[in-house]
């Protein structure tokens, strides 16, 4: 019975995310299985591979790592890096650190919200952009900064927003 159940969960994941991603994640689990306390590392990998942690992924981790689902859900919601919903194609990480705040990040946020018509933590209807402010990118000297899919834009004013977003359209 156990074997059948396992296969079906894995099959669901393959259907949703494709075989490559699931295989990659299974390898990551193998790397960590024997290391005590490595649950967060596994979840970090899952977040990176799948882009978010839907319930199927959490169940799969629970089953493979032999940790109750409640604990996994608790961790998923505790740490800000883990998300339960998928992000847009382009993730806008606007830095909300102190240095950026002092140099006007709040105005940038208003401008982006207005431009995309979404609130913090939301994704545009076409699934293109999601707005996820972040604590500190550590590029304080270039404040205010934002990062879109890893690319950093610094010394921004609200007027730069249109042009930058255009690049990704």
């Amino acid at each position: 019975m156990q074997g059948m159940k396992e296969a079906s969960l894995e099959e669901k994941l393959v259907e949703k995310f494709g075989k490559d991603k699931v295989e990659k994640f299974k390898k990551s689990i193998e790397d960590y299985r024997e290391i005590p306390g490595s649950l967060i590392a596994v979840m970090n990998d899952a977040q990176e591979i799948f882009g978010y942690l839907p319930i199927e992924v959490q169940l799969f981790i629970s089953q493979e790592m032999k940790v109750p689902l409640t604990e996994i859900f608790g961790i998923s919601t505790f740490y800000s890096r883990f998300t339960l919903k998928p992000s847009g194609k382009y993730k806008i990480n606007l830095c909300m650190g102190t240095a950026c705040y002092v140099r006007g990040a709040a105005m940038l946020l208003e401008k982006i919200k207005e431009k995309l018509g979404i609130e913090v933590g939301e994704t545009t209807e076409d699934g293109k952009f999601s707005l996820e402010p972040t604590r500190c990118l550590g590029a304080c000297a270039l404040a205010p900064v934002m990062m879109i899919n890893g690319e950093v834009f610094g010394r921004l004013t609200p007027n730069d927003v249109d042009e930058i977003l255009k690049k990704f359209e």
Binding site: T98, G138, A139, C140
Partner: peptide, 10 residues
Amino acid sequence: EGDPGAFMDR
């Protein structure tokens, strides 16, 4: 290093 506005350790 979680303080927003600090990047010494990094």
